[in-house]
Design a protein around this nucleic acid. Structure first.
Length: 946
DNA sequence: CAGTGAGCGAGCTTCCGCTTGACTT
């Protein structure tokens, strides 16, 4: 008899549920989402590749219809599910009861296309009772909730895939922007900016060791002198380091404190007030993902990833409930188990009289799961499972067990005491705390490893005193204080901040931190997260030009809209339409900002410590550097932005910066200088210059290396009566023999190439990439032309003379088989790009020619398959841009270049006149013009082909 | 703004949120 197929999200969950449901049911898992938007062009099916929206994976012109694909690593699993569906009596989609879960259910339905009845069931705890109850009360898929998820997905894709390219063009390639990561980075950058602006203040205080008449000791601190309160940290302005103007306080400098000490240490002190207030403290809520990560960090020293990896293993092996949750709720069985254990281990007195429940505290919590707790209806104690677990697992289980049990324990009760003493015109204060009944603190103290020790720490016991008692000064000393800048975020506190703002989800907290580290926005020092200069430049761009997108409330507002969509009160397509195509929409924003953003301005990073010093910090192609006039110096990678002081900057620059004298030639005594030139970094000695190799950097340049570089050009020997020179040119290393030349395989071979090797190179015909280069391999087929595997400029590729196909990263040219090669060719083979003005005649009017319907006279070459991305506007017969075309790309130029070209082209001035105005020699200005022309042409060509 | 021998198969990078395995040494 056919079974009912139940599909959940997680395999571990499937196993458990199958036990509860019995033999009429088969339980399988989807293993998360089964379909998604294509990640990159390689995942886009062939028929959509030509669409203008192919890279987005969303047909923005037609109701933002998403293109969903089953990612290749999921195909096998989906096929397996399909097969199971065919044999099933009915299908129950039991994915999580939240937005993403509803979406997974819908995708399963769409993709598996069941012909048998389909139901949707949900549950919030995995107990036999809850599961049986859930399966008896099925419902249908909630389309509105699915739409809300789709809107979320599409919005995130549009944001990420439209804004990231702006960063590539204006800041650096491979950077990224996104609704979550950009705000996470912003938090870090803003905090660092606060630290950079922070001015520390120094203040002093007094601390006294006192004795009662019964010779019982205690300490008290000065709080008031002459009727005025003593200044504390919060009385200072963080930006100036001065007292806030309205602060009515006494500020003690060191001398004041010492003077006061002399005056007070012999004074007579009397108790002027005593106060005692009872207090109670409630236990913390059971763990959710974010609090588990925080406590994992504070108590165990685990980072977010380690905590989650460990929790995952505990979950899979049945020790704890699901670890990605935002709900603090305990199921009934968990509640009972916890309470029973409290009674057994600590006694009735320690049990809270009624079951405790905790309010949800996370913004946008979806509460599809329980809190994180020991699994089952009877909790196994840490001691019981000790032998079965690894060290990490045991520590984390112990933590979870304690927190869960503590959550049902009684309040802690105690008293807080405060005593004030007066001597002359000074008032001292002492506080104490006594815990009368520890309650839950016996099991769990937040942030501490050992509850018993922490309990003792918490008690500061004051001897009994009464108003009017005299006390004696045993000792008194001055104490120095400095105000501290706001602390840097740690993984744990960043997660906490994101969660408080409703940004990110339990399943993503750990990966958010990885992402911003991978992109080079953040690095870690100990547990502190430090934003990089790249993060500063990126944030400046986003804040100045896309402020709405990095607003801390952006996600919260989105969530409100998604709730409206989920509730059926709002439609998702108009919502996206407005976000993308609206007057203030993303698309128009990007179009206008792409022109307005000045990369030079963005690369300049304001540093408060350097204001007025003529030193500027910029983000360049190879990282951050400082510049003062003509001198520049690379900023070390491990220096935090708030640590860069004027003194340190001057020091780095005074070493000559990157452009400095490295030393003298031991033979001639001539200076050897490192410089940054128009064509990149180089070293110079007298008249002789040599470019650095790509592996060198100015900041790491030494005299020895410079001397070695200066041996190039090197006379290799003589061949056929002509000298052979090893040279480093515009296109890289090469050999020169008279008018003949050959490219060398690598820069280092400039030093090592021998006459024999040179002879071999010149004996072979001039290497022309892709034409005469020897193939690595040739595969022959009975039914098609042979395919060659070659190595070119960009790495290995395949060619059969007509079509070429590239290999992806990870595809090894040497291990290709004939069959694999044929497949790759069929899949990716394309005719080589026709060169400008040399269009092939055989380009048949293909489907792509339809795109040029707007221009009736479009030449065949523009529509040829070789240049499928040609825009409707023909680029002109000669492919040459006019000034008006080039003008919009002025942002690729430096300030001087821009001023020069504008003066010449717009104001019709002569180079001879403009050069002096810009402080240039006429010859240099003319040289610059060549560069300018090249840069503009290149930018224009890129824009046209994009 | 050092000073230099050509001609050439590129495509891709990126988002957020669900969830686990995995080429072999």
């Amino acid at each position: 008899m056919a079974k009912t197929l139940v599909i959940v999200e997680s395999p571990a969950k499937a196993k458990t549920i199958e036990k509860y449901l019995g033999k009429d049911y088969q339980v399988e898992s989807s293993i998360g989402h089964i379909r998604d938007l294509p990640n990159s062009a390689s995942e886009v099916p062939e028929q959509f590749k030509q669409k203008p929206w192919a890279s987005l994976g969303i047909d923005v012109e037609h109701d933002f219809k998403p293109l969903y694909v089953v990612p290749s690593e999921k195909k096998k699993h989906v096929a397996k599910l399909k097969a199971l569906v065919k044999e099933a009596r009915e299908v129950v989609l039991a994915t999580d009861d939240d937005r993403e879960g509803e979406s997974i259910a819908w995708h399963l339905f769409q993709e598996l296309k069941p012909k048998v009845p389909v139901k949707r069931m949900v549950f919030h705890e995995i107990t036999p009772e809850a599961i049986r109850n859930a399966i008896q009360h099925p419902r249908q898929i909630d389309e509105n909730l699915v739409h809300a998820q789709e809107a979320r997905r599409v919005l995130d894709r549009l944001y990420g895939y439209e804004v990231s390219p702006v960063l590539w063009r204006k800041v650096a390639p491979k950077l990224s922007a996104g609704r979550v990561q950009s705000v996470a980075t912003r938090l870090l950058v803003e905090r660092e900016r606060e630290r950079m602006r922070f001015r520390s203040a120094e203040f002093w205080s007094l601390e006294g060791l006192f004795r009662t008449l019964k010779e019982e000791g205690f300490t008290a601190a000065l709080i008031e002198v002459g009727g005025v309160r003593l200044a504390t940290g919060k009385d200072f302005d963080a930006l100036t380091g001065e007292l806030k103007p309205d602060a009515k306080v006494v500020l003690l400098k060191q001398a004041d404190a010492e003077q006061l000490l002399q005056r007070l240490k012999a004074a007579q002190f009397t108790v002027i007030s005593t106060e005692e207030r009872p207090f109670t403290q409630k236990p913390y809520a059971p763990f959710i993902t974010s609090s588990l990560q925080q406590e994992g960090s504070r108590k165990l020293g685990f980072n977010a990833q380690r905590t989650m990896r460990t929790a995952q293993r505990l979950y899979e092996n049945g020790y704890i409930t699901y670890m990605r949750t935002d709900s603090t709720t305990l199921s009934k069985e968990a509640m009972e188990a916890a309470r029973k254990q409290v009674r057994q281990m600590y006694g009735d007195e320690y049990l809270h009289p009624t079951p405790r429940t905790y309010d949800k505290k996370a913004k946008n919590a979806q509460e599809a799961h329980e809190a994180i707790r020991p699994a089952g209806s009877r909790f196994r104690t840490p001691q019981e499972v000790r032998g079965e677990l690894s060290d990490d697992e045991f520590k984390l289980y112990d933590l979870i067990w304690k927190r869960t049990v503590a959550s049902q324990m009684a309040d802690a009760r105690g008293r807080r005491m405060q005593v004030r003493l007066q001597g002359l015109d000074a008032i001292f204060s002492a506080s104490g705390k006594t815990i009368d009944f520890p309650g839950f603190l016996r099991a769990y103290v937040e942030g501490s490893d050992d509850p018993e020790a922490a309990l003792e720490d918490r008690e500061v016991i004051l001897p009994p005193m009464q108003k009017g008692d005299s006390v004696r000064v045993k000792d008194m000393r001055t104490r120095e204080h400095h105000t501290q800048p706001p602390a840097r975020y740690t993984e744990a506190s960043l997660v906490q901040a994101l969660e408080a703002a409703g940004i990110g989800r339990p399943s993503t907290y750990a990966s958010i931190i990885s992402t911003i580290q991978d992109r080079g926005y953040v690095f870690k020092r100990g547990t502190a997260l430090i934003p990089t200069w790249t993060a500063f430049a990126t944030q400046a761009l986003l804040e100045n030009h896309f402020s709405r997108l990095v607003d801390y409330n952006f996600t919260a507002r989105m969530e409100e809209d998604l709730d409206e969509i989920a509730g059926g009160r709002k439609e998702h397509v108009p919502y996206l339409q407005d976000f993308y195509f609206g007057d203030e929409g993303l698309k128009s924003q990007i179009q206008t900002q792409m022109d307005q953003i000045d990369p030079r301005a963005i690369s300049l990073i304001p540093v408060p410590a350097l204001v007025g010093s003529e030193i500027e910090v910029r983000l360049g192609k190879f990282g951050a550097y400082m510049k003062k006039g003509e001198v520049s110096a690379t900023l070390p990678n491990d220096i935090a932005p708030d640590e860069l002081t004027l003194q340190q900057a001057e020091e780095l620059l005074s070493k000559g910066g990157d452009e400095g004298i490295l030393g003298q030639d031991p033979v001639t005594g001539q200076d050897v200088v490192a410089k940054a030139g128009r064509y990149g970094p180089y070293v110079q000695m007298g008249e002789k210059t040599a470019s650095l190799f790509p592996t060198d950097s100015l900041s790491a340049m030494t005299l020895e290396r410079a001397m070695q570089l200066l041996t190039i050009p090197r006379l290799v020997g003589t061949l056929d009566g002509e000298e052979v020179w090893a040279m480093n040119g515009r296109y890289g290393p090469y050999l020169k023999k008279g008018k003949d030349n050959r490219t060398l395989p690598g820069h280092e071979s400039l030093f090592t190439v021998t006459v024999e090797q040179a002879q071999a190179l010149f004996a072979a015909p001039k290497s022309r990439m892709g034409q005469s280069a020897a193939p690595l391999k040739i595969f022959e087929y009975p039914d098609r032309t042979p395919i060659q595997v070659k190595v070119g400029r960009f790495g290995p590729y395949l060619t059969d003379g007509e079509n070429n196909a590239y290999l992806r990263n990870g595809e090894d040219a040497h291990s290709l088989t004939a069959e694999k090669t044929r497949e790759l060719m069929a899949e990716r083979g394309k005719p080589p790009k026709a060169r400008a003005g040399k269009a092939t005649k055989k380009a048949a009017p293909s489907k792509t020619s339809k795109t040029s319907k707007t221009s009736g006279k479009a030449p065949a070459k523009a529509a040829s398959k070789a240049a499928p991305k040609t825009v409707a506007k023909p680029a002109g017969e000669t492919q040459k841009a006019e000034w008006k075309d080039l003008k919009s790309h002025l942002n690729v130029l430096s300030d001087t270049e821009r001023q020069l070209i504008v003066a010449l082209r717009e104001e019709n001035k002569k180079a001879e006149d403009v050069a002096p105005e810009l402080g240039l020699e006429v010859k240099k200005a003319k040289g610059m013009m060549l560069q300018i022309s090249k840069k503009l042409q290149e930018a224009w060509r890129k824009a046209v082909s994009a």
